[in-house]
Amino acid sequence: DRIFMTRTEALEFLLKAHQTAVDKIGHPSHKQTPADHAAIEALDRLLLDVRARRVDQFQINASAAQIIVTD
C-alpha cells in the first residue's frame, strides 16, 4: 500500500509516531530495551531527513504502508 502526503503531513505523522514511541518507553509498566531507543533514534533521523528534503518516501516498519511525500 502507498499513502501520498504533503511534506507537512508527513512531518506531523512522524512527530506523532515519535511521541508514541517516547510515551511507550516512558510508561512505568514497559521495560526499556535497546531496540526501543534505536527506534526513536531512527525516527529522529527520518524526521530530519524528511524536513531537509533528503527523503521523499519512507516506511516506518515492514508491515506499514509506504509513505510518499509530495510537494
Rank of each mutant, 00 (worst) to 15 (best):
A21G: 02
H18D: 00
A52V: 08
Q57K: 15
H18F: 13
I40V: 10
D36S: 04
R2E: 07
I3T: 05
T20P: 01
L46W: 02
K24Q: 08
E41T: 07
A65F: 13
V55P: 01
T6D: 05
R54V: 13
I25K: 04
G26C: 12
Q19H: 08
R45M: 08
L46V: 03
I40E: 02
D23L: 07
D1W: 04
R2K: 13
L47I: 15
S63M: 12
A17C: 06
I40M: 09
G26H: 15
T20A: 15
M5W: 02
I67K: 00
A10N: 00
V50E: 00
E41G: 07
A21T: 07
F58E: 00
A64Q: 13
I60W: 08
F4V: 09
G26L: 10
S29M: 06
R54N: 09
D36M: 09
L46R: 00
V50Q: 00
V69E: 02
D44A: 11
V55T: 07
A39H: 12
R45A: 09
L43E: 00
K24E: 09
L48E: 13
H18K: 14
D1I: 08
T20D: 09
L43H: 00
R54G: 03
H30N: 10
M5R: 01
D44M: 14
N61V: 09
E9P: 00
A62E: 10
V55F: 02
A35I: 05
H27G: 07
A62P: 15
H37W: 15
V55I: 14
S29Q: 11
L11F: 05
A39K: 09
V69W: 01
V69P: 01
Q32A: 15
L11H: 02
I3Q: 07
F58S: 00
D56S: 15
R53C: 09
A64T: 13
L15N: 09
T20Q: 14
K31L: 15
D36Q: 06
L14A: 00
Q66H: 06
F4E: 09
A21L: 15
L43A: 01
N61Y: 11
G26S: 15
S63F: 14
R2F: 05
H30P: 02
H27F: 06
A17T: 06
A42N: 12
Q32G: 15
A64S: 15
D23A: 11
G26V: 10
H27N: 14
L48G: 10
D44L: 13
H30W: 03
L48W: 08
A64R: 07
V55D: 01
V50N: 00
S63D: 12
A62K: 10
D56M: 11
A10I: 01
A21F: 09
K24S: 06
D49R: 03
A65H: 11
T33G: 08
D71L: 07
I3L: 09
D1Y: 09
I67C: 01
T33I: 03
L47G: 01
E9F: 03
L48N: 15
T20G: 08
R53Q: 12
I68C: 06
K31D: 13
A64P: 08
P28Y: 03
I67G: 00
N61Q: 10
L15F: 08
F58T: 00
P34M: 06
V55C: 05
Q19M: 09
A38N: 08
I25D: 02
S63V: 05
Q59E: 05
A35H: 08
E12H: 11
R7G: 02
Q59R: 13
D23W: 03
D36T: 03
L48M: 14
A17Q: 07
I25G: 04
A62Y: 06
K16T: 10
Q66N: 04
A62W: 07
E41K: 13
F58H: 00
D23E: 13
F58P: 01
H27E: 14
D1E: 08
A38R: 09
H30K: 03
E9W: 02
T70Y: 13
A39S: 10
L15H: 11
E9I: 03
R2L: 10
I68W: 12
L11R: 01
V50C: 01
I60T: 03
A38C: 05
A10Q: 00
A52I: 06
S63E: 12
K24G: 05
R53S: 14
V69H: 01
G26M: 15
D49W: 04
D49F: 03
D56F: 12
E41Y: 10
I3D: 02
V50A: 01
Q66E: 11
Q19K: 12
L43C: 02
V55E: 02
H30M: 04
T8I: 13
L46F: 03
R53I: 05
V55K: 08
H18R: 14
A52L: 14
L11A: 03
T33L: 05
A21N: 04
K31M: 15
R54K: 12
R53T: 08
T6A: 03
A39M: 15
A21M: 15
E12P: 00
E9H: 06
F13K: 02
T8W: 12
R54H: 08
R2P: 08
Q32M: 11
A42W: 14
D56V: 12
K24L: 12
M5L: 06
S63G: 06
L15R: 14
A10L: 02
A64N: 13
R53P: 01
L48I: 13
E9T: 03
A52S: 12
D1M: 04
S29T: 10
G26R: 14
L47Q: 03
L48S: 14
I60N: 01
Q57W: 14
R51C: 07
A64W: 10
N61I: 07
R2G: 05
I60Y: 02
N61C: 05
D71P: 09
I60D: 04
A35L: 09
D36Y: 04
H27W: 10
D49V: 03
A38E: 13
P34G: 03
T33S: 14
L14R: 00
S29W: 06
R51L: 07
R7A: 04
F4N: 05
A52F: 14
A17H: 08
R51T: 11
A10C: 03
I67F: 03
R45G: 05
L14H: 00
K31P: 14
D44Q: 15
Q57R: 14
T70L: 12
F58A: 00
A52G: 07
L14Y: 00
T20M: 15
P28W: 02
T8S: 13
Q57N: 09
A21I: 14
P34T: 05
Q19Y: 05
L43I: 12
A62L: 08
D36P: 02
I25Q: 05
P28A: 11
R54L: 03
R54F: 06
D23P: 01
R53F: 13
K16S: 04
A39Q: 12
D44S: 15
H27R: 10
R45E: 06
R53Y: 15
I25Y: 07
L15T: 13
A10H: 08
L48C: 06
P28H: 07
A65T: 12
D71G: 09
A17P: 00
L48A: 09
H30Y: 07
I40H: 03
D36F: 05
A62V: 07
A64M: 11
E41W: 08
Q59T: 09
Q32N: 13
T20E: 14
T6S: 14
A42M: 13
E12L: 11
D1C: 10
F13I: 06
D36R: 02
L46D: 00
D36V: 05
D44E: 14
D71W: 04
V55W: 01
L43Y: 02
Q32K: 10
L46C: 02
Q19G: 04
T8G: 09
T33K: 03
Q32C: 10
A17W: 07
G26Q: 12
N61W: 05
L11M: 11
S63A: 11
